[in-house]
Amino acid sequence: MIHPVDMALAAVMVLVCGGLSVWLSLRLHGALAVAALRMIVQLVLVGLILRFLMGEEAGWLTLPVMLVMLAAATREVGARQSRRLRGIWHIGIAFLSIGASALPVALAGLFVVTRGLDLTDARHVVPLLGIILGSTMNTASIALNHLCGAVYRDRLVIETRLALGQTRRQALADLQRQAVHAGMIPVLNQMAGAGLITLPGIMSGQVLAGMDPLHAAGYQILLMLLLATAGVAGAVLAVRLTLGRLMDARDRLQIDRLH
């Protein structure tokens, strides 16, 4: 347990950064203060909720909590897109692609870690799902942002390729590949840099909490593999479903379905 005095010491360091921002006119102190306070409130709340969920009586609440997490992740995927599918399609596709990739992978992770599939086991389910959902949300969001922008920009290229008799698969192959690649960059960077450039968060936390570094590394490896799997699945699903919506049954680009 970290002592409140230690926590205050860390807070003082952030305050010093705020002071530096005022001194150098960086205009960072406001955003830094809001982000820090928000982070503290959110994490304390999550800690309290998790502690409650881990109680004997509250295990059944884990499932609704999972759904709330999935809904929040779905909303976030659409939140920062410069272009996206019109109507409820982008929400539906985000929900389906994140849900269908993150949930099974989180369940697989749960099974590996606990040798069981107890969905009321909040101690394992919530953190596992949280980290996998967060990463998959990121991957799908970047892939979709890349895809929708590229389809709009390259609509004449797509039409030209179709006009030359290419199949839908041929005409869209480059866009699909580039979008999935773009989405996977954060996860690939994280894997490539793990241990060399940064000590990943989970591992650092566990080592700081006193776990044997090799055990901590094992957990981190497992997680990275789960994140990569969910990321690829989420990005591929999101991209393919979106492209499916953007083409009609006669392989015609329906650009008015984007906005």
């Binding site: 390259d154 004449l156 290229v157 039409e159 030209t160 390729r161 179709l162 006009a163 030359l164 008799g165 290419q166 199949t167 839908r168 480059d174 006669r250 392989d251 015609r252």
Partner: peptide, 19 residues
């Protein structure tokens, strides 16, 4: 199939595109 139709009935747009 649509691609087969377009291989027989080819269209050239006024604006060209390259990839």
């Amino acid at each position: 199939p649509p691609h087969d139709w377009r291989r027989h009935v080819g269209f050239l747009s006024a604006e060209t595109a390259w990839w």
